[in-house]
Amino acid sequence: MRRGRSLENSVLAAPVVLFLLLLLGFPTVLDIIYGFSDVTFETLRNPSFNGLDNFRTVIADDDFWHASWFSLKFGVLTALAECAIGLFLAVYLAPLIRQHPWLLAFLIAPMIVSPAMMGLMYRLVLHEFVGPLPHYLYTWMGDSPAFLSRENVFLTVFTIETLQWTPFALLLLYMAYEAIPLHVREAAAVDGVRPLKRFWYVELPQMLPTLGIAFFIRFIDGFRVFDNIFVLTGSGPGGSTMSLSIYIYEAFFKSGSIGKALAASILLFVTSFLILLLAGRLIRGRAE
């Protein structure tokens, strides 16, 4: 009976496994081959093995390190800001959302917009001659800053990303906040704990796992940022807004350096895998 069920499970799972192998496995194997090859668009079918040359080129490329630093900084800062603001809103607006649950749908609306559209929208919103923001700044204050200048562009893309994805942190953290059992809060209140201390010593510790997950997801998303920045500024003056994803895209399509692009993507994959492994061990260690 058990054997029959096992066979049935295998048969039912086979199409999905096959599909995943084809869809993910084949490109991955091809990426690894190309990452160790001298290959161009003309030699896609007969790449020549060149060992670690592509990896050496990538590691010696200043742009790769600038792009990595940009992605890391962007990922960490946006994740921190989104989680901090999301946490504040989740707690501060909880009574209001409890009374009017539809508010939550309204608050998470920015997440529905695709990042590329968001970039396009801000290209208009921030344009000095057609955008509403510079228009009102000129009208009320007589001047408007250069939102996309080299000095301000990081702050601008950071703000855009934070505005769009804070609702994600808000959603997760509000759910976590609401999941705290009522009797825990009531017990703290009966013991005379003030709201701020109650939050810090009772509620926040219970929300920490969710906060960690929200930070982690937002960091991954911020680290691999591409669409909105690419639409808004491209790789920026002198490559000032070149994220690692943009670096890989430009190396592949714009420069035709396929091996170099894939070597960079393999390095990115290995680094991400190691970070995930480390994070997993840390979480398991804490749980034990």
Binding site: E128, S149, L232, T233, P237
Partner: peptide, 15 residues
């Protein structure tokens, strides 16, 4: 314009 470092065809026309 101050943001010229992010300007291309469409932005220049609008200006």
């Amino acid at each position: 314009p101050k943001d010229s470092l992010s300007y291309e065809y469409a932005e220049a026309n609008a200006a």
